[in-house]
Design a protein around this nucleic acid. Structure first.
Lengths: 292, 292
DNA sequence: GTTCCGCATGAATCGATAG
DNA sequence: ACTATCGATTCATGCGGAA
């Protein structure tokens, strides 16, 4: 049995209407943040962000299975010396739509953007908001916990010198990770704090999240041959991970280049690429099957 | 010059009215969370939490110096399968009061409370919300610098060509100015994610934060002989740290036992204990001076 | 094949300068 | 006054080439 990857080029709000209700097991996405990525996505203004996002989340609520989960990666930026409040307002509004705000994971970005300011430190975390349709949803904790030993060792292998030195030299302030907790332990239980570095070596796309991020949530919330949706696909990290893990995937992006890029990366597998209807009038969505 | 510690027994909302305006450099506190610690604080219900807190934050806004900072340690609990929204609502309401929501630090609890649930992982983080009166406030970043990654000493001895060209290409008016900043550097500025273990050895008070937490913020936002306020003192961790660090301190708590406990811990230093006015009618606040 | 080192590059943020 | 653009600041990471 093969897994499929469907890529749609177009506006998520509209494209999502083509996707049947109650058909997706996991939505994991990182939408363009407010006032960010102007060159590629046009940059949604802070004041209009909630209004812009709500029609999309409404569609996401429809296409998600009752047992499914929606993971939203987002972080508010600083505006005029304050943190913006649009993320909080979005959560409140999405609850009114019918979403349950089940949990908030923290993504600790070990390699955050550098810089120095008189009144602020570097921002080293982002939100991973978990939304659900029902209080009962699929969660396969064992899938994360069993490979967790593997995960822990692989993370341990990647422990940077910074981690080690900061830990060893507690220097009064005492800030640092306690590595001894990680050694000599075959099983590590996950918490709602994830420690991952961003990938800064990708030259073609500005900043995707690291593969470990969707990988972790796919393990946790889906089984093989479940369906994963990323309505802001970008260069397609989620879809590539889904493919590797034998999950069906759907990706949507407004930017033609990203669709092409994702298509290229997904070449080895069966691929369907849908171009927007507008371009092809009433013709059926163009279906390309590119099998190596 | 001695530092003083004033302990008030009573309701923060009322006691705070006795404290002069613009007199506190740092407020750092961990209020009772909603529906938690019922037996000691009476448990503020989730729906009434914002309403309960706003009169207090109004007083805090008054007593804080314009250059001061308010650090609020809080985390929403799970209610009926969802994260409660009262923290977000509180932030929105406090902004209406005049507070600036400057930053949100994350306290990553390295050893969080154990447990297992079918639909949720262990909660390993709390919010440390930073509020200010003005966009300009005192911040002494150098006091909390952390040891830098190993690359600083071994790798950076030879400045990379990039750094040189970056600087030389600047004005051309001379050598790059910032290169000197990099030489002999062994420390870096921290981020807004704090890694601290909770203290699990405190038996008498249900939810104290570790001493490192107030210590870090006291270093960052105050100098010696500044004044620190904790309107929900508990067993007095903040005050003890303030004392050790030569900051004046004010603590308020509703529970007589906690006041006594804090008093006991602070015995070695000069101490003033104020009992609530109501108890003593129009008598002046009882003043006890316990000097070793 | 290891280890070491040079290097580019980030969902950043502030303050000054320009329209 | 208010917004858009730009320069300066800064550090962890992985890659690739060198020892």
């Amino acid at each position: 049995m093969e897994v499929t990857s469907n890529i749609y080029h177009g506006d998520s709000k509209e494209v999502l209407k083509q996707i049947p209700s109650d058909s997706v097991d996991l939505i994991v996405t990182s939408p363009p943040y407010a006032d960010q990525r102007k060159n590629t996505y046009g940059g949604i203004h802070t004041d209009q962000y909630v209004k812009w996002f709500l029609p999309i989340s409404e569609q996401l609520l429809r296409v998600l299975k009752p047992s499914g989960t929606f993971i939203l990666n987002i972080k508010e930026k600083v505006a005029n010396g304050e943190r913006s409040t649009y993320v909080m307002e979005l959560i409140l509004e999405m609850r009114k739509q019918g979403w349950l705000w089940t949990e908030e994971f923290i993504w600790h970005k070990k390699n955050c953007y550098p810089g120095k300011w008189p009144n602020r430190f570097r921002d080293a975390w982002e939100r991973l908001l978990q939304f659900n349709k029902n209080r009962k949803f699929n969660m396969y904790q064992e899938e994360v916990m069993v490979p967790m030993g593997e995960w822990a060792t692989s993370r341990l292998k990647k422990l940077s010198e910074t981690d080690k030195t900061r830990d060893n030299s507690k220097v009064g302030s005492g800030f640092g990770k306690n590595i001894s907790n990680w050694l000599n332990r075959d099983k590590a239980y996950p918490t709602n704090v994830l420690h991952l570095a961003t990938e800064c070596n990708n030259k073609n796309h500005s900043a995707t999240f690291p593969e470990e991020l969707p990988e972790w949530f796919l393990k946790l919330f889906t089984h093989e041959y479940d369906t994963v949706l990323d309505p802001f696909m970008g260069s397609g990290t989620s879809l590539i991970v889904a493919n590797r893990m034998k999950r069906h995937s759907i990706g949507i992006d407004n930017v033609h280049e990203y669709c092409e890029m994702a298509k290229e990366k997904l070449k080895p597998i069966e691929l369907y690429l849908f171009e927007p209807k507008a371009k092809y009038e009433k013709a059926k969505p163009k279906r390309r099957s590119t099998v190596r």
